[in-house]
Design a protein around this nucleic acid. Structure first.
Lengths: 354, 354
DNA sequence: CTGTTAGCGCGTTCAC
DNA sequence: GTGAACGCGCTAACAG
């Protein structure tokens, strides 16, 4: 091989291989190598080959910081999510990762912890990195955050929810309508004393509760006594204990709309512990339709939301805008929801299998 | 206010506020502002105040790319995780975010999808960003990846598992021992026909199976017929269907060690559907002890691993090394595990509460 | 299709 | 305690 086959080492630490090194080895200028990397169509086939080989031989990796500084752009798409450790967002993130993989963009996650202030701070950090695009959760950004977003130069998509004043693009569904539909389902199935179990009341939860409340009122079955919430985040355990509290105060309850499936599962377990017949004595409806709800025994009715698709398409929308800024695109996409009604499939007879 | 109070706009887009702008406003040189930001103790109190005010007035935000280029460092800690959407890693990540918050570092997540090749690629990307530190999952890096890591100049911590040849630091536990302990628990409780239910057999799962197998063999109760796996990732639904398959082939099974709690929960539901008495007819043992296992009805025995602590301490270890590179620190931390044995707390009598 | 020149915004290294 | 000069690695804008 040539005069300089592998990354040279000076005093034990590797000296960075730069564009100039590659250029020198091939006998061209740095900019040509740069072009071969970013717009190969502008470089002759022969050079492309030689450059590619030199890059491999030298083990050259572009420096993203230098690239960002020189060009004023990055290939990072920033994603602001209330809780990266929440099942609901797991599905969204899975969709995002799927969509980002075939592209040259990278995803960078930020954890806002449901705090508008943290969201603002993270936004500042993200914007300082000149992202290629931004995903942000919900429609309840602080005034400051909205201002920052509006003056950002990259495409932005708000996810999880639809609403009247998109910053740029938007993909989600109406939490109010979804809760209203679930409530209607419970009432149609015969509930006269429906309850709502929430946990931490973030803005989306509040809109769900509004959908529940209005629907109940219209049917003449609303009572504020049948609402229970706490400031804590949802867990299965919390669902069980909230329900235990609630049912001891309001024993007439015949149906529960839960703010999410974790709470619903906890209620299911607590009901089993109390030998309550489901759904005869108690109808349970979750929210999100996590994978496990279909196989729970007894199975749990839930509101299916299209989280995976939402994640995937949010990234696709961004990438399309980034690569083709002037193309007209639908700005607001409502993915809707489905109330998935389930009944037990358990055998009525004795045990099987031995 | 002065000659230049707010970010100037040129043609509708904000011109970036730089160090020089702040410096000009205060009447000092750029480097002084830089120092005021990074080592305030080297700048007089008066100047500090004036500079801070100017920064706020101008809305100056440092450019991380320029900073990285000039200094050769960043404040990013890179985290490579097989699946950011897996419950197990959610707890780890929660711990990491907790630990990173009081520091000046940022976390950047990479999703390796359990693929050593993707891990290699992401590692290359991460290293090109000159991270302040790296977290990487497990001890099964490819040879190339190990080489890259070994010649990295930042501290590195391997998580989830302990083993003989740490790249740098390590925090985790022995999956072999944990599975062996759980198996012993099942055998001591009377199992003569224990089964192992896995899903995708990643390296950690394989070591768990080895612990199960060796323990069973020592007790004379091993049979390869009582092992079931698939290439798919674990879900609750998958647990139910794998168990349905397994029990129809091997009806004598009296205990199941599951590779994780999702599978265990699916098995629990499937067993309920078949009206099998738990634990009399079937003992179920999960792995990880997710929050929901304690409240499941009947409750499920599981192996508790200290994932949250692992995440938190991995970051703490890194930060300590970064800020104090020569301090001696324990390189390998074994967090251990606990077999949490559970029995039903359901009331034996009739339904309560109405 | 390829090269030249200039500079992105900041930190390092020295000087004062 | 503060400043001047230089360069990090790359790309934009123009030239040929």
């Amino acid at each position: 091989m040539g005069e300089n086959g592998s990354p040279e080492r000076l005093g034990g630490s590797v000296r960075k291989v730069t564009l100039a090194d590659v250029a020198a080895k091939v006998g061209v200028s740095a900019i040509t190598v740069s072009r071969a990397l970013r717009s190969p169509e502008k470089v002759s086939k022969t050079l492309q080959r030689k450059i590619k080989k030199a890059i491999a031989d030298l083990g050259y990796v572009p420096d993203p910081a230098a690239r960002a500084l020189a060009s004023g752009r990055t290939n990072v798409i920033g994603v602001l999510i209330p809780s990266v450790t929440n099942n609901v967002f797991s599905d969204v993130m899975r969709g995002m990762y799927e969509a980002i993989e075939p592209t040259t963009f990278d995803l960078q996650l930020g954890n806002t912890r449901y705090s508008p202030l943290m969201e603002e701070d993270l936004l500042k950090v993200f914007l300082s990195q000149k992202p290629a695009g931004l995903v942000i959760t919900g429609i309840d950004q602080s005034k400051t955050a909205r201002t920052m977003l509006q003056s950002a130069t990259c495409p932005i998509v708000q996810i999880m929810e639809t609403g009247p004043n998109p910053i740029d693009m938007m993909i989600g569904f109406s939490h109010y309508d979804a809760a209203a539909a679930a409530t209607t389902h419970l009432i149609d199935a015969g509930s006269r004393f429906p309850a709502f179990v929430g946990a931490r009341m973030d803005p989306r939860t509040q809109r769900r509760f509004a959908g529940f409340k209005d629907t109940c009122e219209r049917a003449g079955v609303f009572s504020r006594e049948r609402l229970i919430t706490t400031p804590e985040p949802s867990t299965v355990t919390l669902g069980a204990s909230l329900f235990a509290n609630l049912i001891s105060q309001q024993p007439e309850i015949d149906a529960v709309l839960c703010n999410n499936d974790d709470l619903a599962l906890g209620i299911l377990f607590e009901a089993q512990r109390r030998h309550m017949a489901i759904p005869e004595e108690l109808m349970i409806c979750g929210f999100n339709d996590l994978e496990m709800m279909a196989v729970a025994e007894p199975p749990v009715t839930s509101v299916r939301t299209h989280r995976h698709e939402m994640g995937r398409r949010s990234i696709e929308m961004l990438v399309r805008q980034i690569e083709n800024p002037d193309a007209e695109a639908s700005k607001i996409i409502d993915l809707g929801f489905d109330v998935i009604s389930r009944r037990s499939t358990a055998r009525r007879g004795p045990r099987l299998g031995s």
